[in-house]
C-alpha cells in the first residue's frame, strides 16, 4: 500500500512537472495573460477606480464576487472548526491550580474543594503549562497595541500599498492570539468573548454581501460600487474607491474574528477553559 501510494505520488508529481514546461515563462510579454488580460487592468484601473494598487482594484472591484466567496470560505472554516471541536457542556476539570499573587506560591485544589475565586488575592493558572515570566508578559502587552494599529493601517492603506482586508485581518487576529499566548485564554475570553468573535465574523461577511445587495437595490449590478455614489455623495469613480474600502473592512473584521475563534477552539480542545 505504501509503495503504491509512493508510485502514485511520483506519477502525479512527474506529470505536473512535465506539464509545467508548457507554461509561458515567467514575465513573458507574449503570453495570453500578458497580452489580453493584464493590459486592460494596467491601463484602466486608475481611471476607473482611482486606486493606485492594481491588485486591490482587481481583488475587491473587478473580481469582487471571488473575494466575497473567499471571505465566505474563511467564515465556513471558522464554523467547521466550531462544530467539530467545540464541547458544548462545561466540564469541571479534576483539579484546578491557583497562584497566590503576593508570594507566587501555587496551589492545587482538588475537585469539590473551595475555590478562592473573587478574593482578588489568587489567580487561576493552567494545569499543563504554567509560565510566569514578567518580561514576556510586559513585552507582549507593550507590543499588542502597535500590532493592532499596524493591522488597521494595512487595511486602510490597501489602496496605495500591498495589503488589504485579508492581511490586515490576519495581523489583527494575530495580535489577539499573541495576547492569549502571553497571558492565558480566560483573560483573553474576558476581553473578546467567543460570542463576539462569532458575531463579528458573520458581521464581516454581512458587510460585504450587504454592500453588494445595496448596489443591487440602487439599480446597478451586484457589487457595482458605482451605484453607491448617490449615498456617499461623491462621484462614481470615488464611489468605487470608497466601496473597496467598505468591503475590505468587512473582510478584515471577518478574518480577524475567525482567526481568533479558530484559535480559541484549537488551543483549548473545544472546552475554552484552559488553553495554550
Amino acid at each position: 500500500m505504501r509503495t503504491l501510494g509512493l508510485i502514485a505520488a511520483f506519477c502525479l508529481g512527474g506529470l505536473l512537472f512535465f506539464i509545467s514546461f508548457d507554461f509561458p515563462s515567467w514575465g513573458d510579454a507574449l503570453s495570453p495573460a500578458s497580452r489580453h488580460v493584464s493590459p486592460y487592468y494596467i491601463e484602466h484601473s486608475l481611471e476607473d477606480t482611482s486606486v493606485p494598487n492594481i491588485v486591490t482594484a482587481v481583488l475587491a472591484d473587478y473580481r469582487g464576487f471571488d473575494t466575497l466567496f473567499e471571505t465566505a470560505v474563511i467564515f465556513s472554516a471558522g464554523l467547521a472548526c466550531f462544530f467539530l471541536v467545540r464541547v458544548s457542556e462545561r466540564q469541571v476539570p479534576a483539579a484546578r491550580f491557583y497562584r497566590h499573587l503576593a508570594t507566587g506560591i501555587t496551589f492545587r485544589i482538588e475537585k469539590g474543594g473551595r475555590l478562592p475565586e473573587g478574593t482578588g488575592e489568587f489567580e487561576r493558572i493552567d494545569s499543563l503549562w504554567v509560565p510566569y515570566d514578567v518580561i514576556i508578559g510586559m513585552t507582549c502587552r507593550l507590543v499588542v497595541p502597535f500590532i493592532q494599529l499596524f493591522a488597521l493601517y494595512v487595511i486602510a492603506h490597501g489602496h496605495h500599498s500591498p495589503g488589504g482586508g485579508f492581511q490586515g485581518g490576519v495581523i489583527f487576529g494575530a495580535a489577539i492570539i499573541l495576547f492569549a499566548i502571553s497571558t492565558n485564554l480566560r483573560r483573553t475570553l474576558k476581553r473578546m468573548s467567543e460570542r463576539s468573535s462569532a458575531l463579528l465574523s458573520s458581521l464581516g461577511v454581512l458587510i460585504y454581501a450587504g454592500t453588494g445587495l445595496l448596489c443591487l437595490f440602487m439599480g446597478a449590478g451586484f457589487l457595482n460600487y458605482r451605484a453607491l455614489a448617490a449615498i456617499l455623495g461623491v462621484d462614481q469613480v470615488a464611489a468605487r474607491s470608497d466601496g473597496i474600502l467598505i468591503v475590505e473592512s468587512g473582510v478584515g473584521i471577518a478574518v480577524a474574528a475567525v482567526m481568533v475563534w479558530i484559535y480559541y477552539n484549537l488551543s483549548s480542545a473545544g472546552k475554552q477553559d484552559e488553553g495554550l
Binding site: 494575530a174 484549537l266 495554550l276
Partner: peptide
C-alpha cells in the same frame, strides 16, 4: 501582495494553529 499574505497567513497564524493542535 501575495508575499504579504504568505508571511501573515502561512508563516504567522497557521504555524500558531499547528502548534496549538500539536499541544492538544
Amino acid at each position: 501582495d501575495v508575499a504579504f499574505t504568505e508571511a501573515s497567513v502561512g508563516a504567522g497564524v497557521s504555524t500558531v494553529f499547528f502548534v496549538a493542535a500539536v499541544f492538544r
